[in-house]
Design a protein around this nucleic acid. Structure first.
Lengths: 243, 243
DNA sequence: CGATCGCTTGAGCTATCTCAACCGGCGTGG
DNA sequence: CCACGCCGGTTGAGATAGCTCAAGCGATCG
């Protein structure tokens, strides 16, 4: 039941295919500017109605919900190329917040352009629905992870997924990629306590499977990690949560 | 942080608004037939590429993923008016399975109609993206539930959500609605073991909060249930997971 | 220098899991 | 019409993953 590469059937474009020149030109039309922010900036607020959509060009962030109890559920990690704010563009309101973890440079689009896009470029509109459906797929997977996997399995899977995404973005060098989050962030993403996350990370480190220190993830034994994560080693490269 | 009513901004249509005559006529154009199935029928198979889209008119079902370990994660419960198969319509493949629990009557659409729709009716295409975004919202919420809530809280929330949806569909009479699932189904939806689910249900019953027997959910103390579920009592009616 | 932040480690507690047995209803076949 | 098997639900008992509380440590910063 290995994960397949996800292609948009309309134009047969895999998630991570770089944009063609035509596409770039097309995007330029909608681009209204670039935004540079510090780490720790809130880009989108739950309940807000932002007039902008973003795509990060550099830097990393977090997508999360704040619960009534004050706890935080991290929905996923935001990497370059993701799409931020489609939810607000299409519903009237964001259902989660987005925050930069490191300094970020973002490409800014105007929200009104979205409707224009639907009218004038049905194939792009189709892409957007596709993006949303892909996103749904990953959320479904996360749901299954939280529902059925143990702490070490969850962390292993998170690492493999992040490694996949990092690889697709060319962020990996010598089995090492930047992962500038706190242990608390990972804990909130996986529904684990900070303490337990820490102890489990220690275990992975002692077993020589993977280390994550000083914002840098180092995968020492990829096969073993995949095995723990209950993922096949021969996955087709892919995976990017979006919107 | 109460949940808001979700309106499609384009036509300001709330999730559950009945369709206008024009809309009904419009849908008729795409309808290719009706399908009647037994309980226990698999309507969509994970990894399959169904040429049809469905909307249940009667009956209830389940959306689920089968994990490599053989376990099952129920993604959500399928009630009349839901949309089945958009994911396959837009990606090439379903990422989860759908199964009827009771006998069902379904409205059938042709998948190719979807692309026609995007070309000819941008506002409907926008609706579809909106639907996907709404779906994403609910999955995000489920994620938060599994991540952070105790067994009794999860069950209480599931009951409240199901009650909301049942109410919107007119399925409730005397605080009682049909809920023809097995305890195992609920357990798989909430990431709990069957035994623990059973014991927690017993607890809710003993406390006079809610009973669920013989396929019928009876909410005895709505306020208390909402309190346990950490939801405000004055939610605006809404909620339907779709696609 | 004190304060803060992220990480680490220890100790005890409990929610939840697994294993196992049993029960009643229902359909089937002899 | 009875015997049997199966399915869903119920209950008990023991094991444990993961939680909370609490303390300490090194780095960074004003």
């Amino acid at each position: 039941m290995g994960t397949k590469c996800l292609n948009c059937p309309l134009r047969n474009r895999p998630i991570f295919a770089p944009m063609s020149d035509g596409e770039v030109a097309f995007m330029q039309k909608f681009k209204t500017g670039e935004l540079v922010v510090e780490g720790g900036t809130t880009l989108m607020m739950e309940g807000s109605n932002s007039p902008q959509l973003y795509t990060p060009l550099e830097g990393m962030g977090l997508r999360y919900k704040t619960l009534d109890s004050g706890e935080r559920q991290v929905i996923n990690f935001v990497l370059p190329g993701d799409f931020i704010g489609l939810q607000a563009g299409v519903m009237n309101e964001m259902q989660h917040s987005v925050e930069s973890t490191t300094p970020m440079r973002l490409c800014v689009f105007d929200r009104r352009a979205l409707w224009q896009l639907f009218k004038d470029h049905p194939e792009r509109a189709f892409d957007l629905t596709w993006i949303a459906a892909v996103e749904e797929h990953f959320l479904g997977e996360s749901l299954a992870i939280l529902g059925h996997m143990s702490g070490i399995e969850r962390i292993a899977r998170a690492f493999v997924r992040l490694h996949d995404r990092g690889a697709a973005l060319g962020l990996i060098s010598a089995a090492r990629m930047p992962l500038p989050y706190r242990q608390q962030d990972l804990a909130d993403a996986l529904g684990l306590s900070l303490v337990h996350t820490n102890k489990t990370l220690t275990r992975l480190r002692q077993q020589g499977v993977a280390t994550w220190r000083d914002g840098s993830l180092n995968i020492l034994d990829y096969d073993r990690l995949c095995q723990i994560a209950q993922l096949p080693t021969d996955r087709t490269p892919m995976t990017r949560p979006l919107i």
